[in-house]
């Protein structure tokens, strides 16, 4: 089981022949991911990394049966790539691209509402199901197979959490980097819900940061659930000054509920075990699981 991707997933790479696309597709293939081909407009009919290249996502889907796509297209064209994949019927689109104009994402998000496509990202490290399928730019070796689900807004913090989980003698089912932009496809709550319904996941690490109301939404949803799996939470940005953009475009403290302090209080109140130091994620999870 696990969530979103597994051994059976057929992956298409949009922006396949570019520098980023080539590098990361190679890494994904080495990890054992079933990459069935790629899309680069005007390079259709050629091959790249021993896989076919198509002009359009629709052509690629027809020929390969791809059901997941990963996007390495430059920011100016990335929203278009998301919509093209959705229009072609791709079930899961993972958009790695950082720096997409916000108004482009406003349109893409609306477009997705009339399709069945789930979007992960943009501006994210992707999704990995340990030992099966890597659809992203994360270092595969960090993710040891196990039963902990990870959902995070941040890339390197996802690796950090996974590494700590492994050092605590546990492992990861699936890790999802949902991205740090103001508008993203899959929210913290949606990822948490997928993990709660996944028989292979026993507990969840939920990593958020300042800005937006997604962690509070996830926490309140969690509180309502009758059957619960343990959740360890961390919010980055306790020391961030208000009104400043901290790398991620979404990480600006604005309203009353989007400071780290407010989010941590809400999460605690909803039954999540909140750690204040990022160094304590793995050990805390281990102590809860063993209880």
């Amino acid at each position: 089981m696990s969530i979103l991707v597994n051994k059976q997933s057929k992956i298409l790479v949009q922006g396949f022949t570019g520098t980023e696309g080539t590098f990361h597709a190679t890494q994904m293939i080495e990890y054992g991911t079933n990459v069935v081909g790629g899309v680069t407009p005007n390079k259709g009919g050629t091959t790249h990394l021993d896989r076919p290249v198509f002009n359009t996502v629709a052509d690629a889907v027809k020929e390969t049966g791809a059901n997941v796509s990963i996007i390495f297209v430059p920011p100016a064209f990335a929203a278009d790539a998301i919509m093209e994949a959705a229009e072609a019927g791709i079930a899961l689109v993972v958009c790695i691209t950082e720096g997409i104009p916000v108004q482009d994402m406003v349109k893409a998000k609306l477009f997705l509402q009339s399709t069945k496509t789930r979007l992960i990202g943009p501006n994210c490290p992707g999704v990995i199901t340990a030992g099966e399928c890597k659809v992203g730019i994360m270092p595969g070796f960090v993710f040891k197979k196990g039963k902990i689900g990870i959902v995070s807004k941040s890339g390197t913090l996802t690796y950090e959490a996974s590494d700590q989980v492994a050092k605590a003698g546990l492992g990861v089912s699936t890790a999802v980097g949902i991205g740090g932009d103001p508008i993203i496809g899959t929210t913290t709550k949606e990822a948490l819900e997928l993990f709660m319904n996944d028989p292979e996941t026993e507990a969840i690490v939920m990593i958020g940061e300042i800005g937006g109301g997604m962690e509070a939404e996830a926490a309140r949803w969690y509180k309502e659930q009758k059957v619960k799996k343990p959740v360890v939470g961390f919010i980055a940005g306790q020391t961030a000054p208000p009104g400043r953009r901290m790398g991620h475009a979404g990480a600006i403290i604005g309203g009353a509920e989007d400071t780290a302090e407010a989010k941590m209080a809400i999460m605690k109140d909803c039954g999540i075990t909140v750690v204040s130091s990022p160094a304590d994620i793995g050990a805390t999870m281990a102590s809860i699981i063993k209880k």
Partner: peptide
């Protein structure tokens, strides 16, 4: 990484 950078500041 921006998230790890903020977490490091917290630490």
């Amino acid at each position: 990484g921006a998230g790890l950078a903020m977490a490091t500041m917290d630490m």
